[in-house]
């Protein structure tokens, strides 16, 4: 871009930001049903906003979000399986490259961290990574749902629900434990139990990371004058970034500990 054009572009952008900021400051704030404190408290504890699961049970919005994500993934996977994968070429196109890179990345992660036993681990970390990434990005869509109170809320990321985070943390620990048992028997159990704090740390790390994202987003959207410009950075870039980071952190930790407990015992020479 020429120097003059670039200068003009920056001036116009700066003016637009200033005008929008002034307008947002002058704008009348919308009437909120809940105060920000209540919204944040509910985002953490899910005490007030519950959603009915087929009329059987009142559940947290995160669970409904999780089922929705599974539905989306199912549709995407079936379409990919029927229309894309059979047309795979030896020299891949863009979408094929994306799928192959994702599969190859998690397979390599499993192989490099657990060279002795990695067949199941590869598929598990792929599923977990894919779930974390997609479910974190899911909050960007803003799927609407009606709570049992009759209020409309946008569905949060499934893993910002503590129950979802605990499930994934504990399941990852169980996978590690079962890998240890399958490879080393009792010794594997011992090695896995040595890291007894792992399920708690993994669960709460993920819950904390995703919850913080959700809280920041809630706060940004709660105040009108923060809703101009900032959501592009907070809503999209931060979400995308922590989706990638959390998917990588959990899968990497699982692979690492799995590799540790499935390492065969070296026989010492007498």
């Amino acid at each position: 871009m020429p120097k003059e054009k670039r200068k003009r572009f920056f001036i116009i952008t700066a003016l637009a930001i200033i005008v929008l900021t002034i307008l947002s400051a002058l704008a009348r704030p919308p009437a909120h049903h809940e105060a920000i404190g209540e919204v944040m408290r509910d985002a953490v504890l899910h005490e007030t906003n519950k959603i009915s699961l087929l009329g059987l049970l009142d559940v947290n919005p995160g669970l409904i979000a999780a089922f929705t994500v599974t539905g989306i993934v199912l549709v995407f996977s079936v379409i990919a399986r029927i229309f894309v994968i059979p047309r795979f070429k030896t020299v891949p196109g863009r979408f094929q490259l994306l799928l192959e890179s994702a599969v190859g990345f998690f397979e390599d992660l499993a192989k490099s961290n657990s060279p002795h036993r990695n067949t199941f681990l590869g598929s598990y970390v792929f599923a977990a990574g894919f779930y974390i990434f997609v479910s974190t990005l899911f909050e960007l869509i803003g799927f609407q749902a009606v709570t049992t109170n009759g209020t409309i809320i946008s569905l949060p990321a499934p893993l910002s629900d503590i129950n979802g985070a605990i499930m994934l943390g504990c399941l990852s620990y169980l996978v590690i434990l079962s890998g240890g048992i399958a490879q080393n028997g009792i010794r594997g159990v011992g090695l896995a139990l040595k890291e007894f704090s792992l399920p708690v740390s993994m669960s709460f790390r993920m819950f904390g990371a995703l919850l913080s994202g959700a809280l920041v987003t809630e706060m940004v959207y709660h105040y009108t004058h923060l809703s101009y410009g900032l959501p592009v950075i907070v809503g999209v870039l931060f979400t995308l970034l922590h989706a990638l980071i959390q998917a990588y952190v959990l899968t990497m930790l699982t692979s690492l500990f799995y590799g540790e407990v499935t390492e065969p015992k070296e026989k010492h020479k007498k």
Binding site: A66, V73, S77, A80, L99, Y124, A127, F130, P158, L171
Partner: peptide, 17 residues
């Protein structure tokens, strides 16, 4: 959540991975 993840794992394993 676990049931949901198991279903998701099966879908991903059989259709994608």
């Amino acid at each position: 959540h676990l049931l949901n993840f198991v279903i998701l794992f099966a879908i991903l394993y059989f259709f994608l991975y």
